[in-house]
């Protein structure tokens, strides 16, 4: 059902089949942004897992390794990489929890409630990312 390999198709540039929704040309509601950011953060996280494992590995390798992880938080390049990874994690989890709650049937009954929970999720994510930022750069 997902397979397109036995359908004969023209190369993409010559393909004149209509596209249902040209999302580049319309303005989207907040729910769309919350959703696409969840996807973007998920893809970032796929690679961020390597960062988390590297931190975990170093912190458990030896007392020196543990200290090196702490010292690493003073290096700006490392800070930015860890920050990006944790910010993606924070966003993905908050938007993911919203997703799970809606899967249980809460708040998915109307566009109003979906929009409100999208706003709430965005707000919580911003606070979480602010905490991560403070922890890495200010503390």
């Amino acid at each position: 059902m997902y397979s397109d390999n036995h359908i004969k198709v023209l190369p993409a540039v010559d393909n004149k089949r209509p596209v249902n929704l040209d999302i580049g040309s319309i303005s989207l509601p907040i729910t769309s942004y919350v959703s696409i950011l969840h996807r973007v953060s998920g893809v970032i996280l796929f690679f961020a897992v390597a960062v988390f494992l590297w931190l975990f590995d170093a912190s458990l390798s030896s007392p020196e390794g543990f200290e090196s992880v702490k010292a690493m938080f003073a290096n700006p390049v490392c800070q930015v990489i860890v920050w990006g990874s944790l910010a993606a994690l924070a966003y993905h989890v908050v938007a993911g929890v919203r997703h799970l709650i809606m899967d249980f049937g809460v708040g998915e009954d109307s566009f109003e409630s979906g929009r409100n929970s999208a706003r709430l999720a965005l707000g919580v994510a911003i606070v979480a990312i602010a905490l991560v930022t403070g922890w890495i750069f200010l503390w």
């Binding site: 397979s3 397109d4 390999n5 359908i7 198709v9 190369p11 993409a12 540039v13 393909n15 089949r17 596209v19």
Partner: peptide, 11 residues
């Protein structure tokens, strides 16, 4: 990575 977005080599 679909035929529409990437072309006939998509699969």
């Amino acid at each position: 990575v679909t035929v529409r977005l990437v072309g006939p080599k998509a699969t």
